[in-house]
Amino acid sequence: MSEIYRLAEQKDAEQLLDVTYRAYQLIRELGLHWPAATADLALIEDNIATNECYVLEVGGTIVATITLSKEEEVKKLSPLPFIKWFAAHPDYSNRGYGGKLLDWVEENIILGQLGSPEVTLATAKKHPWLVQMYERRGYKRFLELDPQNGDGIMYLLKKTLADKPQFIQRG
């Protein structure tokens, strides 16, 4: 089946709500206050309109989604591109779709279009496997904070992407 990487459209909102809600089940069980974990259709539609929400579609089904934030609040933490709302459809787990979409966004959007050699994201210390997953993918912790909302310690992680080729002008 063909894999299609693209920006989400408003017509995708209901399917994105289903993917996100199901993927964030553990986040709700851990009692984390992440907007994506309890999003309703209006919040999903707002995310699509306000940010750059990307999807990986396989056979007409959205199997993974990731958002590149455009929100000013995030820029106070780091001026670098910020990834959020990363989710893979549980029915398609262990097929690498989430990782493929993350790689595509890092290479084609963050490095390729934005020209940023680095990217950031945040995750909770108390999540049983997310910190380790991101670290295996090359992300490194650079800031620890407590949002004072009951989530406990949150880590900001940063990844250095491959440098774009530099052209040297010789005179």
Rank of each mutant, 00 (worst) to 15 (best):
T67L: 06
E71M: 14
T65H: 11
K100R: 01
T61I: 11
H127Y: 06
V119R: 08
P147N: 15
Y92C: 05
V58R: 06
G96A: 02
E71D: 09
Q148V: 10
K126M: 06
A88N: 12
M154N: 10
N108S: 07
G98Y: 01
P90W: 02
I66D: 07
A124L: 08
I48M: 06
P90E: 01
R136F: 07
W104F: 07
V55P: 03
W129H: 10
N108L: 01
L121S: 04
P79A: 03
Q132R: 11
Q148F: 08
Q148H: 13
E107F: 10
Y54A: 10
L80P: 07
Y92N: 02
G115W: 01
G96D: 02
M154C: 12
R137L: 09
L41Q: 07
R141V: 15
G96T: 04
A88L: 11
L101F: 03
P81T: 02
G99E: 04
L114A: 08
G99D: 01
A87P: 00
E135Q: 15
A122T: 13
P147H: 12
Q132F: 11
K100E: 03
T50Q: 14
I83F: 00
G98C: 00
R136A: 09
G99P: 02
I44M: 04
E144F: 09
G115S: 03
Y139P: 03
A64P: 00
A124V: 07
K70L: 12
K76N: 13
V131P: 05
I83P: 02
T50R: 15
I66F: 08
T120K: 14
L145G: 09
A122P: 07
T120H: 13
E57W: 00
Y155I: 07
D146Y: 00
W129P: 07
D46P: 05
N108A: 07
V74H: 15
R95H: 02
I66K: 10
Q132Y: 09
V119T: 07
K125E: 12
E107M: 11
M154L: 11
L80H: 15
E73K: 14
S116C: 08
G150E: 05
E57Y: 01
P117D: 11
Q132H: 13
I62N: 00
L68D: 06
Y54G: 10
G59T: 12
L145D: 14
D40I: 06
V74R: 13
E72T: 12
I109E: 05
A122Q: 10
V74I: 15
V105M: 01
Y139H: 04
D40R: 08
P79W: 04
G99Q: 03
G99N: 00
E106N: 05
G150A: 07
C53T: 15
V58E: 10
R136Q: 12
P147Q: 13
E72S: 15
S69Q: 02
K76W: 14
N94A: 14
D40Q: 07
E106R: 02
G98T: 00
N51R: 11
T120W: 14
K84T: 15
I109G: 03
H127M: 08
T65N: 13
D146I: 03
D46Q: 11
A122W: 05
E73L: 15
I109F: 05
E45K: 12
Y139M: 04
A42H: 11
